[in-house]
Design a protein around this nucleic acid. Structure first.
Lengths: 218, 218
DNA sequence: AAGATAGTGTAGTCTACACTACACATTGAG
DNA sequence: CTCAATGTGTAGTGTAGACTACACTATCTT
């Protein structure tokens, strides 16, 4: 009958992919800066160039565009964090490296924006939650748990629920900081402050609070 | 001139306080269930009974009502958590008790709803962020840090940045769990699961990962 | 060169909703 | 008893914005 592709259509032509990406780029900029509810589809088209009809052909509706944007970004952001080649390092250094990389990413204004929007919209768009979690935080946790598992197998570490252990370590790293940055209560931490905190967390994770933190050794 | 009380007016009469509370109750139920943007002031008046004019007399506008509601709830929720009388317990038990109380509160659907709404709206309403943080999470962190300080003074614990330490411990407790519940990816944990996790966290916090977790002792 | 596929541009429809206006009722203090 | 404050109810007003319709153009394949 007619040429309808009501859902998310895979772009066939080169020009198609360009338009699609332009729309995603504009959506990303505007949604993350002003929030999903505050941005109209017309705003996005105005920013991206092109036409409203194209937007609807590609994404079906406003939610479809939003989800496509979130999925693209969650993957991209956490792609740099799969952290391989750390098996040769002592665990302190491995955790340190992963921690610093993670905190830098997570404290980044773009990442925070995605987090805010996902939290805000997930009650209405449950697929969004999965998209984000599996593409982002869940993958980091999985990667860290795998690292722990390998160490257990090499008998460098006691066995345990490695996925939970990974979650706890990641929780330590973010702790209060994440909330404070999400709510924009303080300005972003410096690189030095991040390194400092990660050191303290790694030490605490490995030795606990009763064995004096290494930052306190004189 | 006219009888204008454009901002948040202190209720003078008894009847006034009743109406005001009825509005706050309705706002709470609806905002937390459907989200700030999805609920109209007319919905709230319909739920609360009374009249639209009354709402505007009390709160000035929709945002004012929202903020009053959030402030009231943040305080109420975390009021049960100031956790005193723990100084006499061994630290394991003190942390255990506080951890369980906290996790139960934080995993509660109402608390999660407040968190979602604050995160969603704080970019547009920055006062909201402070209101929530200082009335809620910030107070818990402060209380725990004070507890650490007292222990340091009694030489039961090495000195350090107690506020950061408190933040890290709280981060361990919440870890992955909070995000998972915020995004509604899993159903609420049982009381037993909570106790289990808190035990593991306390142990890890005190002894680190290299001393086998207590849950692994046979 | 023809027809399919994708893109453009404009104009319009329909609905939702924050906020206001206004006329009237209730209450309680002095 | 009165007057000032407070609450009620209804009926707007104005605007914003998601989505559609439609007529037309550009590009690509065969």
């Amino acid at each position: 009958m007619s040429s309808k592709a009501p859902k998310d259509s895979p772009p066939t032509t080169e020009r198609g992919r360009q338009r699609r990406n332009a729309l995603l780029d504009a959506a990303q900029r505007l949604f993350l800066e002003h929030g999903y509810g505050q941005v109209s589809v017309n705003d996005i088209v105005a920013q991206a160039g092109g036409s409203l009809s194209t937007l609807y052909r590609h994404f079906g509706n406003k939610e479809g565009l939003f989800q496509a944007m979130i999925e693209r970004r969650s993957h991209h952001i956490y792609d740099t964090l799969t952290a391989d080649g750390v098996d040769e390092l002592p665990i302190e250094n491995a955790l340190q490296r992963l921690g610093i990389d993670l905190l830098i990413k997570v404290m980044d204004e773009e990442t925070l924006g995605i987090y805010r929007e996902v939290v805000a919209e997930s009650p209405r768009q449950p697929q969004l939650a999965r998209l984000f979690f599996d593409g982002g935080p869940g993958r980091v946790r999985r990667a860290l748990a795998d690292y722990f598992d390998r160490r257990v197998q090499r008998q460098l570490m006691p066995a345990g629920d490695s996925i939970e252990l990974a979650g706890i370590f990641l929780g330590m790293l973010l702790g209060e900081w994440h909330l404070i940055r999400v709510l924009q209560l303080e300005s972003p931490p410096s690189r030095a402050a991040i390194e400092d905190r990660v050191t303290r967390c790694v030490d605490l994770f490995l030795h606990g609070v009763q064995g004096f933190p290494s930052s306190r050794r004189q």
